[in-house]
Simulated scan of single mutants.
Amino acid sequence: MGFEVNRFKSEVDDELICPICSCVLEEPVQAPVCEHAFCRCCITEWISTQPTCPVDRQAVTSGQLHPVPRILRNLLARLTISCDNALFGCPLVVNLDSLSTHLKDCEYNPKRPIPCEQGCGMIIPKDELKEHNCIRELRSIIQSQQTNFNAYQQQISELKFIMNEYKRELTLLKDFMRAMRISNPAMRAIADQMERDEVVRWSGTLAPARVTRWGGMISTPDENLQNIIKRSLSESGCPPHIIDELMENCHERRWPPGLSSLETRQNNRRLYENYICKRVPGKQAVLVLHCDNTHIGENMMVEPGLVMIFAHGIE
């Protein structure tokens, strides 16, 4: 649908009128052979029911339409037109090619979004301002958010139920594998491999870490500090079958010979650089897992790995 002719302040040439809607062309396109021009919207709708030119009935499809010549576009651009919001008081008359820019900021636009100054600060259309009630609108928003919140809670409850079912099934599977491992040597090897694979997968989820100050190592962490690290490991997805053993290995009494005393640690400090370390999430601590450090000698490594806690110096 084009622009109504009576909105223009000068006479409009017939070549600028759409034969379908009898208005001034809007987004004009033309047929390829006869070169008749139409509003894009008008001719597209026309062709959807009868693929012919409405003027001379020559066959035409939407894919054959193309923009009108520049001279026709320039003639349209120079026409002067009243604002769409003239009925609401806008006195401006602008060139047709400037109309869309003006309408974005026209202060007479009844749908122009403006902030409520009565206290709620909501952005609402100008023509709805008189009927706007802050309390009613805010109550409506709160009710809508409460509905969404209840729906989210329901989804969370359902997901928790599904997760608990998965955990229960996983526990049953692990119990079964443990029983089979005891009674069947072949199953014992399979179960051991599954557990090793689980550790490798978990290690792949952890961020790499670099120790910049090995002197900040805490070799005898107290129980509270160990519980903090254990909680972090559990939240990171540490396989349950190794978490207790890892935590026992965070104290120097369980460290390998190359780390068993302050003297040996000082002598072997150059070997620390060969460790592949993973970050204990959110803590000044690293994991040196056996699966990541098969290149390290037995005097510097234990199964399933080491937990090293630091006062500082972790990147």
Rank of each mutant, 00 (worst) to 15 (best):
M1H: 11
G2Y: 10
V5D: 05
N6K: 15
K9D: 02
S10E: 14
E11C: 06
V12M: 04
D13C: 02
L16V: 06
P19G: 13
C21G: 02
L25V: 06
E26I: 01
E27H: 12
E27Y: 13
P28E: 10
P28Y: 09
A31L: 10
F38N: 01
F38P: 10
E45G: 05
E45W: 01
W46A: 00
S48W: 01
S48K: 13
P54A: 05
V55Q: 14
Q58W: 03
Q64N: 07
L65S: 08
H66G: 11
P67V: 12
I71H: 14
I71N: 06
N74H: 07
L76S: 07
T80W: 10
C83E: 01
C83V: 07
P91W: 03
P91N: 10
V93E: 04
S98K: 15
L99M: 09
L99F: 08
H102N: 14
H102P: 13
L103K: 13
K104G: 07
N109T: 11
P110H: 08
Q118E: 15
Q118L: 12
I123A: 13
P125N: 12
E131L: 10
H132G: 04
R136C: 07
L138C: 05
L138H: 06
S144V: 01
N148F: 03
F149H: 09
A151W: 01
E158P: 00
E158H: 09
N164G: 02
E165I: 07
E165G: 08
K174V: 02
D175M: 02
D175I: 03
M177R: 13
R181A: 14
P185N: 08
D192F: 00
Q193T: 11
D197H: 10
V199L: 14
V200C: 01
V200R: 15
S203H: 07
T205F: 01
A207T: 11
T212K: 15
T220Y: 15
D222P: 06
N224L: 12
L225C: 08
L225P: 06
I228T: 15
K230I: 02
R231F: 09
S232P: 02
L233T: 03
S234V: 11
G237L: 09
C238H: 03
P240C: 07
H241L: 04
D244G: 01
E245H: 06
L246S: 15
C250P: 03
C250Y: 12
E252V: 08
R254V: 00
W255V: 02
P256Q: 10
L259D: 12
S261C: 11
E263L: 04
E263M: 09
E263V: 14
T264M: 02
R265T: 15
R265D: 13
N268C: 05
L271D: 14
E273I: 03
E273A: 05
N274E: 09
I276A: 04
I276M: 05
V280K: 10
G282E: 03
V286H: 11
V286M: 11
L289M: 15
E298S: 13
M300Q: 09
M301K: 02
V302G: 13
E303Q: 12
P304A: 12
G305Q: 10
L306T: 11
V307D: 07
I309L: 09
I309Y: 01
A311F: 00
I314S: 14
E315S: 12
